[in-house]
């Protein structure tokens, strides 16, 4: 990179300095979370705990507060992620392989649907759930969550299938395999890494989703952690901030770990952001 003049070295130092400042600014709000979860008497201020302890974690680690909401979240989000990937793969296969007149409009509609604000349809969806008597039903909520991520998943998985050469399947058709057998034995093993990324990202999205279960579920024993954290701490005064911080850490842990796994093994968001560009 050319000649290193003093002015250029100064410019580099300024750039690095600005980057460090941005990093510090992004880190600052997180410091409270990390310090408070070890401080039983934590308030909203940043303070190193006088007596660092795990008391906050112990206080929230019980069935009602933590274990059942986490389990509910796992059922709800794991269920919806599995449904999404399964149904999206089925739908993506004919869309990738057969030319029909409605294919293109359908794909454009799917892409269009990925952009619609899901928040906006929650009022009518609640109305629908009341009509069908599905309010407070976990399977129905999981199915709705799956539908919201379906357009994006179909779009991505169709892209993966497009990249599998059709000649492989043609060989199996000659041997008498049906398209569905070809999908299962030839295509799915080849696109499995892509499918698992879609699975994990759908799960992460659902895990962080507060609004959908907040509207569609009501019984406290059915709520996932995203809503429980709000009902326990957000709605009442005199908040136990230390416990809130500890709970937030425990609730965030699964998605942070999953994100790390994806980004380590797949190049993660870089590739994912690339895939999202079409």
């Amino acid at each position: 990179m050319g000649v290193d003049t003093p002015s250029r070295r100064a410019a580099r130092l300024v750039c690095a300095g600005i980057l460090v400042l941005i990093g510090v600014a992004f880190l600052a709000p997180l410091i409270w979370l990390v310090l408070s979860c070890f401080d039983a008497s934590a308030q909203t201020n940043v303070k190193f705990p006088d007596h660092p302890s795990l008391d906050n974690f112990r206080a929230v680690m019980n069935t009602d507060m933590l274990w059942r909401p986490l389990w509910n979240g796992l059922l709800l989000c794991g269920g919806s992620a599995l449904i999404t990937v399964l149904i999206a793969t089925f739908a993506a296969y004919p869309l990738s392989r057969y030319q029909t007149r409605f294919r293109k409009p359908f794909l454009y509609t799917v892409l269009f649907a990925t952009g619609l604000p899901i928040t906006a349809i929650m009022v009518p969806v609640y109305g629908l759930f009341v009509r069908l008597q599905l309010v407070d039903s976990m399977p129905a909520t999981a199915l709705f969550l799956a539908t919201t991520s379906l357009p994006f998943a179909i779009w991505l998985i169709k892209g993966f299938i497009d990249s599998v050469p059709i000649s492989l399947e043609e060989a199996s058709w000659v041997d008498g395999a049906s398209p569905m057998q070809a999908l299962r034995h030839i295509v799915v093993p080849l696109i499995a890494p892509g499918m698992s990324v879609v699975l994990i990202f759908t799960f992460i999205q659902a895990w962080g989703n507060f609004f959908v279960p907040f509207i569609l579920l009501q019984s406290p024993e059915k709520l996932p952690a995203s809503v429980t954290v709000f009902t326990f701490f957000g709605q009442y005064g005199a908040v136990a901030y230390g416990q809130l911080a500890a709970y937030s850490v425990l609730y965030s842990m699964p998605v942070v770990v999953l994100y790390l796994i994806v980004s380590r093994t797949m190049g993660g968001a870089f590739r994912f952001a690339g895939a999202a560009k079409g």
Binding site: L33, I204, L244, S248
Partner: peptide
């Protein structure tokens, strides 16, 4: 990566 509710609490504090 942090869930939205957690971000909201962090900024609230």
């Amino acid at each position: 990566v942090l869930p939205e509710v957690v971000s909201a609490f962090i900024w609230y504090a």
